[in-house]
Amino acid sequence: MSCPDCFAGSIHEGQPKGQITKLHGLDVYVSSPPQEPSRPSNGIVIIVPDAFGWEFVNNRLLADHYAEKGNFTVYLPEFMNGHPAPLIGLTVIPKLFQGGVWGWLTKPYWLIRTLQVMLPFLIRNRLGKSWPIVEGLFKAVRENEGSNVPIGAAGFCWGGKHTVLLAHGGGSNTTTINNNNNNNNKPLIDAAFTGHPSMLKFPEDIDKITIPTSFALAGQDVTVDASKIEQIQRAIEKQPEEKKGESVIYPATGHGFCVRADHITKEKERAAAEAEDQAVAWFLKWFASAVY
């Protein structure tokens, strides 16, 4: 179950630079490498977003940053069938946790408003409905645009669960694609990055990871708390060196900081930027070692 922090945070300022297109039946925001076509893309990064979805400006700006910093082609698909969490949640949910007498008096009202934000999203985008859409898009990209280039998944909050499932491994289940190149043994992704994932099952979701996975974890996250962070770290220690993951803890941050950090607070802004760099460095490392 997601926590209220999955639906809270700040809206960032900026003008997205990408384009909107259709890709394998889904609307997709595409951010291209700034030096393309003179310099080929280093690979494809597909973002599985937080609860606010593909149209949320923060997610689009993040896609642009990945494209610029890593020279990646970045896809931000519409995985939610038009039912992301409403942006009003960014205003409503913090009020549920107001202190003082007035805060306690108004808490029942804000609890109802919070449930009106969270429950429709969670029902419409439950894993049984969303996972086939996410997996299907990754399969289609692997069989087409990504047949001969590395692919990475970057997932946040709601998208973190899907990214960890993708990191369990698995191929495209096809025998021939594009000029009869054999793709049957290629995993859907070559590397994964997830920031403050939610809805994970411990320890099984972590223990099943076979794809190199990088975790950006908030030090003050009630969804993945200290005991769960320890489980992630222990699981990584057991992984073989050739597929070993990593975890980075950002102490003064809460759930959602990679996407919705309050940029008025310099420490949180710095943590969000460092998490961006963590993801870019991770994909560059594993894309460079992918053989196609």
Score class of each variant (00 low, 15 high):
residue 100 G to H: 12
residue 91 T to C: 11
residue 68 E to G: 00
residue 98 Q to P: 00
residue 79 F to V: 03
residue 97 F to H: 13
residue 79 F to L: 15
residue 105 L to V: 14
residue 78 E to H: 03
residue 96 L to S: 09
residue 60 R to V: 03
residue 105 L to P: 04
residue 87 L to C: 07
residue 79 F to K: 05
residue 108 P to G: 02
residue 77 P to V: 01
residue 81 N to S: 15
residue 75 Y to P: 01
residue 99 G to I: 13
residue 87 L to A: 10
residue 66 Y to C: 05
residue 59 N to L: 07
residue 108 P to T: 09
residue 75 Y to F: 11
residue 74 V to G: 03
residue 100 G to S: 11
residue 83 H to S: 14
residue 96 L to K: 12
residue 63 A to E: 06
residue 101 V to Y: 11
residue 74 V to M: 04
residue 87 L to Q: 10
residue 91 T to D: 14
residue 85 A to R: 07
residue 63 A to Q: 06
residue 90 L to D: 02
residue 96 L to T: 09
residue 78 E to T: 05
residue 68 E to R: 12
residue 88 I to S: 15
residue 101 V to D: 07
residue 108 P to K: 09
residue 82 G to V: 05
residue 97 F to W: 13
residue 75 Y to N: 00
residue 86 P to S: 09
residue 73 T to W: 09
residue 63 A to W: 04
residue 71 N to D: 13
residue 102 W to T: 08
residue 99 G to M: 12
residue 97 F to Q: 07
residue 71 N to G: 12
residue 93 I to W: 02
residue 61 L to T: 04
residue 68 E to H: 09
residue 75 Y to I: 02
residue 70 G to T: 07
residue 94 P to R: 01
residue 72 F to I: 05
residue 106 T to C: 06
residue 91 T to Q: 14
residue 73 T to P: 05
residue 101 V to M: 12
residue 90 L to S: 03
residue 66 Y to M: 11
residue 65 H to W: 08
residue 102 W to K: 15
residue 95 K to M: 10
residue 94 P to H: 01
residue 66 Y to N: 10
residue 99 G to H: 12
residue 108 P to D: 08
residue 92 V to S: 10
residue 109 Y to P: 02
residue 100 G to V: 04
residue 68 E to Y: 10
residue 96 L to I: 05
residue 83 H to A: 15
residue 71 N to A: 07
residue 96 L to M: 15
residue 99 G to K: 12
residue 80 M to C: 05
residue 69 K to L: 14
residue 62 L to F: 15
residue 77 P to N: 09
residue 103 G to H: 14
residue 88 I to R: 15
residue 77 P to C: 09
residue 79 F to S: 03
residue 76 L to A: 03
residue 100 G to D: 08
residue 107 K to C: 07
residue 82 G to W: 04
residue 81 N to A: 13
residue 76 L to H: 02
residue 67 A to L: 04
residue 100 G to I: 07
residue 105 L to Q: 08
residue 108 P to Q: 11
residue 94 P to L: 02
residue 97 F to N: 10
residue 99 G to N: 13
residue 103 G to P: 11
residue 84 P to T: 06
residue 76 L to R: 08
residue 69 K to E: 11
residue 75 Y to Q: 03
residue 85 A to L: 11
residue 84 P to N: 06
residue 72 F to D: 06
residue 70 G to P: 02
residue 92 V to Y: 09
residue 71 N to V: 00
residue 82 G to T: 07
